[in-house]
Design a binder for these strands. Sequence first.
DNA 1: TCGAATTTGTGCGTATGTATC
DNA 2: GGATACATACGCACAAATTCG
Lengths: 248, 248
Amino acid sequence: MPTPPAYLTIAADLRAAILSGELSAGSKLPSESGLMRQYDVSRTVVKWAVAVLKGEGIVEGRAGSGVYVRDTTRLVRHARARDLRTGDDATSPFARDAARAGQHGTWEHDSRHSKADERIAARLAVEPGSPVMRTTYRFLADDEPIQLSTSYEPLALTAGTPVEWPEEGAAVGVVARMDAIGVRVDEVVERVSLRAATTEEVDALDLPARTFVHTIERTYTAGGTPVETADIVLPGGRYDLVYRIPID
Amino acid sequence: MPTPPAYLTIAADLRAAILSGELSAGSKLPSESGLMRQYDVSRTVVKWAVAVLKGEGIVEGRAGSGVYVRDTTRLVRHARARDLRTGDDATSPFARDAARAGQHGTWEHDSRHSKADERIAARLAVEPGSPVMRTTYRFLADDEPIQLSTSYEPLALTAGTPVEWPEEGAAVGVVARMDAIGVRVDEVVERVSLRAATTEEVDALDLPARTFVHTIERTYTAGGTPVETADIVLPGGRYDLVYRIPID
DNA sequence: TCGAATTTGTGCGTATGTATC
DNA sequence: GGATACATACGCACAAATTCG
């Protein structure tokens, strides 16, 4: 049986200490010098060990200070029919999820007219170049950025109606807004994927470099016709996604 | 404007070449010696650059051979009411997903009586230590392992019935099997999460070391009572998860 | 079959820059 | 300012796996 390399052994030890709670969120790992002495290895080995944990997203290095255990408390994003079918008293699904976690959910948005590129056109079943309402969102929980989203709606559907501008009417949420113009949304499809965060996402979400994100392609349809599609970006390891699907 | 470190520049160059298709799946990256000459840097820098890409799961090193671009074609796992409500002619949801991707889906399983630990007991709403049927699965697409799953059913529900042993009856899938004993499954909840793969998962799924996996906690309920719960493990970056949720 | 060349994996030592305390 | 800590980088060495003549 081959012995594992030293840097993996050290990484495993530190990981176990973190998962057991011995090293809690926010606490500092032993310094590189300390680990060098403790394991009698070179700085190279220590750096590779810590790099493994950084790659797993469970620690974060700060130059001049130390390496710290990241907060792993998870937010939960719920997707279920009941939450989407909102009434007049509704708040947004995001605000509700934040409230469930005891946090205060807010968001910034920016809506403007745009044209569908090939990817969005295919998802909305319109011609490339068709006019769409494009809205970018940045969601904050207790003032920390926690979710990005870019939403597209075909203007052929909403132009001139009271819900043309997503954040300016009384109705909240795609289902309620479409309902207000007589469009009955009856299905939502989400495609969940995983990839490394881009540098833009690292900046916008205040993430450590080289972390992972969940990406969700969400499309609402009414009678088979897409009425909204969105690209949603969530920090990986900070979110659990919960789907509740009725059967029959 | 600070210039990015050399190793990130090299990583970005290689990543761009991969994403653009210039370096296609299965092709070999330039050797470390080649990159050292090309960028006029030390071997250390090249190794850090490649380590970034390994951490992103887009390349894979093979000692003595080279570093290769990983296959990024994605399987799609569908979760929707229509697929779960299977009739007599049904195949498993997994086999159907594989067929959609033009692959041949098979699986191995191992069922045995067991006792619910705390975690499973909470999910099944039974007392810890209660008897359960525990079934482990290993799913293969074209003979390559692609998914792991461990399923638990309370024996209080199924013991002595024709569906006690999940893979031995005529009915396929949880919904159809429960239907056969008069239990009407009406909801499934899935919680999707993300974490680094364990060494066991790396072995069982034939993954390169230190990659990510999606984990899904799935629970079927009938009238609010849990009838089955499962832990599902999928290689990150190889799977897209699609959820289709009816509204109203 | 064998051995040499190549390539990655692991590891040591050192140096400089820069952020933090 | 000085001490400490991490980030980046150079050079070297040997082991292990693979490739290929």
